[in-house]
Design a protein around this nucleic acid. Structure first.
Lengths: 177, 177
DNA sequence: GGAATTCCTTGACCTGGATCAAGTTTTTCA
DNA sequence: TGAAAAACTTGATCCAGGTCAAGGAATTCC
């Protein structure tokens, strides 16, 4: 469980390319899969900044589940939520182009940040490119196109959303001129 | 739960392109996510052939879980297994090229079919292309290349594996000449 | 069992986005 | 606070694989 900081869960290709699966902040648990399924971890993880992580040994964790009414159900709900998230990620990777994925990410950020029109990137653009399955160069170019189309304004880590409807449409299907 | 037949779970893009998430046969359950998470289904599903499906209403299902010792743990294991599968699918889509994904699929088939060197495609090549995130044309072309490279022989629905090591390497990193 | 439909293959062409390279900005840290 | 390192941007080029089109094999179903 992340106590403080931010960790990424990711896969690496043979050539060293990285695909981020999740980014977790304080309060989130991760790494349960091998507890219930008994094999190795399905992915790697790494702190993105100075972090404090709590570790609960497998046996204690299983004890806790059997002894705590409702905990099992909460875990089922948590794993289900992650399945849903993966579903969205597969949809994005397979069925959407990079501009749509980037637009979707900005919109997700805005929702996470109280629906603010001015959002702060919580990660570097390089990490962002690994999250949405592209390269830093492409992120750079598409942010520029979004700016040229007056959808957003970018100032280092801050993105100001100027055309929410435009971004929503772009995230669903659209493409940039 | 699939009693008889075969069903696919999939996502559709706005343009009608399809990405298959799972294909389930007899004995497999699916569609649990909204039971534990309370929202809508994360994806669509459709029978690939004449099938018989059993439906367990949410309330009965939850009752069954609370009354049956061990069932909760089994469900946690099942959802964990699916999380792992998604992890592999995201890795394939994002970090591997189409020849590697197709090779991996053939190898998976072979493992499912008692490690036979002669495997039978359980689905059409069009469905296969939707499963590995490509088009029928590309599947066709790559099977041809694999044949030219003496990795396999194809006869309609039957694939004969002639170079297992070659396929394994291709599935991990390689590319075809 | 043969006509119609569906599925698959092959060719020609095109494009989104990756890669390589060379600046420029931002951040880090002594 | 300023030099070095890291992160980002921009341009030029390339190619995997998608799309469109048309012909060929399997299946379906009366």
């Amino acid at each position: 469980m992340v106590e403080q900081g931010k960790i990424k869960v990711f896969k690496l290709s043979v050539e060293g390319k990285e695909q981020i699966l999740h980014i977790y902040g304080p309060g989130h648990t991760f790494g349960e899969v091998p507890v219930f399924e008994g094999k190795n971890f399905p992915a790697s993880s790494m702190a993105l900044e100075k972090s404090v992580i709590l570790f609960l040994p497998r046996v204690k964790f299983v004890d806790l589940i059997t002894q705590t009414p409702g905990l099992g159900m909460n875990l089922l709900a948590d794993l289900s939520r992650r399945l849903r998230e993966f579903t969205v990620q597969i949809e994005n990777l397979s069925l959407k182009e990079v501009p749509a994925r980037l637009a979707a990410y900005i919109l997700t950020l805005s929702k996470e940040q109280k629906n603010e029109k001015r959002v702060t990137l919580p990660i570097s653009k390089a990490q962002l490119s690994n999250l949405i399955g592209t390269t830093p160069e492409t992120v750079s170019r598409i942010l520029k196109k979004m700016t040229d189309a007056s959808f957003i304004e970018v100032q280092t880590k801050i993105i100001q959303i100027n055309n929410l409807a435009g971004l929503v449409e772009l995230s669903e299907s659209g493409s940039l001129a």
